[in-house]
Design a protein around this nucleic acid. Structure first.
Lengths: 265, 265
DNA sequence: GCAAAAGTGTTAACAGTACACCCATGT
DNA sequence: ACATGGGTGTACTGTTAACACTTTTGC
């Protein structure tokens, strides 16, 4: 009964990464604040399968690296971003999910502070609109030219996510493979991570105003929060700096930084 | 740049499963309740590598199944237990973790109601003693004959778990491969899952007393809870039945069942 | 001055903690 | 009767939610 690894068929193993960031919209006037918009990093595919469709960044694993290291390296190649912690999201392994053959995807998610330094010319940040409908999730991605990519992802009776059109090699979503499903899973995970503010911090620079932090929460939860209550709740996790943010047509605000704690993420 | 899956080296992919259960200890007297003990399902290996050591149940993936299906099937083969939801725990993929070659492990964890029907003669429930020390975790497993298997698992500075002896093919823990590390990760996950009682329910039959449920909490958290407070907190998740449990030398207790809710796990 | 956002204070409802007390049972 | 666990009440404390109010700025 000894397992001889050469005897059996083996899958290719890929790592796919969902990277979120927050991009500021332009200000309405000198008075108004700009709201951040949730964005996700996607690649326009330039090779088959799913040529010219958008997909998550990722790549195939090799024995010199762990899966996480492959994911980190691929992410760095596309965006120049490194040294950010990845969290495991799910493994997708249904045969047929990739027309090239038996390919398992290990999916990770993370948050990066926004910067324009996307180093791959086919990579780009897409704005995310996400809504929970009666019996499915609706996902709308918008590129920098305003093109919209819509996907619907449904829940089955086991409360697992599946792609409505999973039997087809070419999905009716606007994303390659089962990547719409992966993004929806990541969005749900992101929402659930907000009971502690450690994920929210990662959208922002070292120093930030409490309003900026609150806007991150509002962006992810899709609803307004009351300032007074938000401040009280969050104060235990942050500390004041000596800095002040000026320049808007209203009272300037103190800058805060996250308090050191043993267990950030 | 098209990926030809035959061109690259591919790993073997295995699924390993951490199954927890609660076994009742014998009663001290007719008056006393019996406390449950946390146990985990392990297999005595009868083939190399790590012959005669204990290891998690698991098996290799094939293209006819998803990884989760492989895990469910293997679990059913060893224990007869089926239809229990598995949760993804981690992927371990460091080259060298398995002396047979490049083998990735996708690790899942779950909870089963206790029964003696372990169908594989080398499979057995092991009692778990788990302690957080200064800079590592200490794990002691005890088999039905009272033999103890001790392992120490450490934390590195990135707050990830790693095996103290990871460079050696034959670990100095009493478990095969990196399975001590996997069990520790599952124990931590189990502890963190208790803010809602859905995991705790799965240790118990359909109908249970609130004291039994509280004992599950105490078993996992490793500390006593106050009955009055526990009852108040848990009441929102359970409903009374008409049944009563009798037979002990004290006031009989009502049986409860979990309340139906949309999102159990 | 004014609009916008920064920031504080107050209240009531609610949840969590600790502890005291009574109830029902098998031997 | 009595030890043991089942079960309730209560007083205290901390957290959350809603809303009213004051402060500070750029134009």
């Amino acid at each position: 009964m000894t397992y001889d690894i050469s005897e059996y068929d083996r899958p290719s193993v890929a790592a796919d990464i969902v990277v979120f960031t927050a991009r500021k919209t332009s200000r309405e006037s000198y008075r108004h604040l700009s709201a951040p918009e949730l964005s996700v990093l996607l690649i326009k595919r330039k090779e088959p399968p799913f040529m010219d469709m958008i997909s998550l960044p990722g790549g195939f694993c090799c024995r010199e690296e762990t899966i996480e290291e492959t994911a980190e390296r691929k992410l760095c190649e596309k965006t120049g971003v490194s040294d950010i912690p990845l969290s495991l999201l799910c493994n997708l392994s249904k045969f047929g999910r990739d027309p090239r053959g038996w390919i398992i995807s290990c999916c990770y998610w993370t948050i990066a502070e926004y910067s324009d330094t996307v180093t791959d010319k086919n990579a780009q940040w897409y704005n995310v609109k996400f809504e929970e409908k009666e019996n499915h999730y609706s996902l709308v991605l918008t590129d920098n030219d305003g093109n919209e990519y819509r996907s619907e992802v449904m829940l089955n009776n086991k409360n697992e996510l599946y792609n409505q059109y999973e039997k087809a090699y070419i999905p009716k979503t606007s994303l390659a493979f089962d990547h719409a499903e992966i993004i929806v899973r990541a969005l749900l995970r992101l929402r659930n991570s907000l009971d502690k503010p450690f994920a929210a911090f990662r959208f922002l620079p070292e120093e930030f105003t409490l309003t900026e932090l609150q806007q991150i929460y509002e962006m992810i939860l899709g609803k307004k929060l009351l300032m007074a209550n938000f401040r009280r709740k969050i104060l235990q996790y942050v500390e004041e700096t000596d800095e002040i943010e000026r320049g808007a047509g209203h009272r300037p605000s103190k800058l805060y930084r996250k308090k050191n704690s043993e267990n950030d993420f």
